[in-house]
Computed example of a mutant assay.
Amino acid sequence: MKGTRITDVTPGTGVSAGDSPEGIHEARDTARAFTGELVPAPGSGLVDTIVLVVSELVTNALRHGGGRYRLELSAAPDSVTVAVSDPNPAPPRERAPDLDGGGGGFGWHMVRGMARCLAVTPGPGPGKTVYAVVAR
């Protein structure tokens, strides 16, 4: 399955899946296409926020969640939900950001700050899904 990418954007939903670092770019493109279909159109600041949340959660899934991800985007009148699933059942681990060595640790803090709600649920299968709800 290495290098597999699935992308589908229809009004109200956006889906992307992959198992390689190129998937991060694909997921960002899916988020931009998804937000471009929303009515009313979100402002550029909201689009940037959604793309950043997608980028961070997909990166974490690829690095720490078993090397595969599935992204699902959905919208309600007052929010956009970013759902990223991966095959690792372990919840994300918050750690102190590495300010000196470039070792990361910033993503979960950023997502928490940008999301109205953040949740981790079991599944699908043996993995988990991370949900981030961003206000519109």
Rank of each mutant, 00 (worst) to 15 (best):
A83W: 00
S79Y: 14
T13D: 11
R116S: 14
G105Q: 10
V120R: 11
D100C: 00
V58N: 00
A31C: 08
M1V: 12
E94Y: 13
V53I: 03
H25I: 12
T13R: 15
V15A: 08
E56G: 01
G125Y: 08
G66A: 06
G127P: 10
P40F: 05
G45S: 12
L57P: 03
G107P: 01
A115Y: 08
A90S: 11
P89M: 01
A27D: 06
A96N: 09
G14K: 05
V9G: 07
T30W: 09
D19E: 13
V54K: 02
V111A: 07
D86V: 02
T10L: 14
S20D: 15
T129W: 06
D8G: 11
P126N: 06
G12K: 03
T4E: 13
L118F: 12
G102V: 10
R112Y: 00
A115G: 09
A41W: 03
D100A: 13
L57G: 03
G107I: 06
A61I: 07
R95W: 05
E72N: 02
A83S: 13
E37N: 07
V120L: 03
N88H: 03
G103I: 00
A132I: 00
F34A: 05
H109E: 02
R93H: 13
R93P: 00
G3S: 05
V133D: 12
S16L: 05
F106K: 02
P89L: 04
Y131D: 08
R70T: 13
S20H: 14
L73S: 05
A90L: 13
A76I: 00
R95H: 12
G12I: 03
F106W: 14
D19M: 04
L62R: 06
P21I: 08
A33G: 13
I24S: 03
E94S: 08
A17C: 10
V15M: 05
T10G: 10
L52I: 02
P42Q: 02
M110L: 15
A61R: 05
G101V: 04
E26S: 12
R116Q: 14
G43L: 09
G125K: 12
H25E: 14
G12Q: 02
H109R: 13
R63P: 00
D86E: 09
T7M: 14
H25L: 14
G107D: 08
G105R: 02
